[in-house]
Computed example of a mutant assay.
Amino acid sequence: MPVKTEHRTLRVLLAAGLVLPALALAQGKKDEAPKKLYCWNENGQRKCADSLPPEAMAAAREEISIRSGMRTGEVQRAMTGEERAAQAEEEAKRKTEALAAETRRRTDQAMLTSFQSEDELRRVFSERINLVDNSINTARYNVTSLREGLVTLLRSAGERELAEKPVPEKLATDIRVRHAQLLYHSALQSSFERQRAELDVEIEDILQRYRQLKASDAPGARVAMDLPPKPRQ
């Protein structure tokens, strides 16, 4: 092998020996998880740490890159039991409204041509009635429970004031939160009770229409009501 070729090969090998460790080091740094800070509020104070303590797992927090100082993420706080219950009731309310719309659509399409008796027609509404009634009962239970809890908290605060002792901030906060929850669930109860009353009116109106058409089940009456001709038996 010529001398120049040997020198060139040696230089290539030496360069590779220097470059490969550098590439491996760079790759290792690249594979490392990016460092970040977690920042949250605790008792009115902002705290930050590179690892999240157990007591802060349910708190709302920001994630900040240590390398760039930029916020890279945000996690909402975990919902309380009361908030989860409220969310479930909101979902029940949406389901009730959606079921009501579907029932109205089906009623308008096929009420008078699909049911042979009022009992059959009433069964269409049984699911809606049960759902609304269950929602009312749940809301009433929540209102009663929240009211009793609020009375207990207010009694504790009143006793401290009568004893000329300061009311702790946590107790005052619990009173405000419980009062807000009571107002929300009271409004929800009223909404469900209003739906139930409207449902009774709707059912009675449809039954009246059904009775009228059954009483005058003639081709002329069916055309006037924009209904298809009654199928022959």
Results as ranks from 00 to 15, higher is better:
142 N>Y: 11
171 L>Y: 06
111 M>T: 04
117 S>M: 06
161 E>H: 04
10 L>R: 14
100 A>R: 09
24 A>M: 08
79 M>T: 12
122 R>H: 07
57 M>E: 12
172 A>Y: 09
204 E>A: 15
232 R>P: 00
188 L>R: 02
109 Q>L: 15
54 P>N: 06
29 K>G: 03
26 A>G: 12
192 F>I: 04
147 R>N: 14
198 E>P: 00
228 P>D: 03
75 V>K: 04
158 G>D: 13
175 I>N: 01
211 R>N: 03
44 G>T: 11
147 R>M: 01
127 E>V: 14
88 A>P: 00
48 C>R: 00
45 Q>L: 04
49 A>D: 14
231 P>D: 05
146 L>Q: 00
97 E>F: 06
103 T>D: 06
77 R>D: 01
162 L>C: 02
30 K>H: 12
65 S>D: 07
11 R>T: 09
96 T>L: 08
79 M>R: 07
4 K>L: 13
117 S>G: 02
95 K>R: 15
33 A>Q: 07
124 V>L: 11
29 K>F: 00
78 A>T: 13
161 E>C: 04
106 R>D: 07
17 G>K: 05
99 L>M: 15
58 A>W: 01
155 R>L: 05
2 P>Q: 11
39 C>A: 13
134 N>I: 05
85 A>M: 09
150 L>K: 12
188 L>S: 13
118 E>S: 08
127 E>L: 06
42 E>I: 08
98 A>V: 09
105 R>T: 11
5 T>V: 14
106 R>M: 09
135 S>K: 05
231 P>F: 08
32 E>A: 15
62 E>T: 13
32 E>N: 03
171 L>D: 05
214 K>A: 09
90 E>W: 08
95 K>N: 15
21 P>V: 10
217 D>E: 01
89 E>H: 10
124 V>Q: 13
50 D>S: 07
162 L>V: 08
41 N>T: 11
159 E>G: 01
28 G>K: 02
76 Q>M: 03
189 Q>V: 02
94 R>H: 10
90 E>V: 11
75 V>Y: 00
216 S>R: 04
104 R>C: 05
33 A>T: 12
171 L>A: 06
20 L>A: 15
66 I>L: 15
111 M>R: 08
10 L>W: 09
43 N>T: 03
153 L>V: 12
64 I>L: 10
233 Q>N: 12
22 A>E: 07
184 Y>H: 13
15 A>C: 10
109 Q>N: 13
91 E>Y: 05
172 A>R: 13
133 D>M: 07
29 K>M: 09
60 A>S: 14
31 D>L: 10
128 R>F: 01
182 L>N: 01
89 E>I: 14
142 N>K: 06
111 M>C: 02
10 L>M: 06
153 L>F: 13
100 A>N: 12
173 T>D: 13
58 A>T: 06
33 A>N: 01
16 A>W: 12
129 I>H: 10
229 P>Y: 07
230 K>Y: 06
220 G>V: 08
140 R>A: 14
75 V>S: 04
30 K>R: 12
207 L>P: 00
228 P>S: 08
86 A>R: 09
2 P>G: 06
94 R>Q: 13
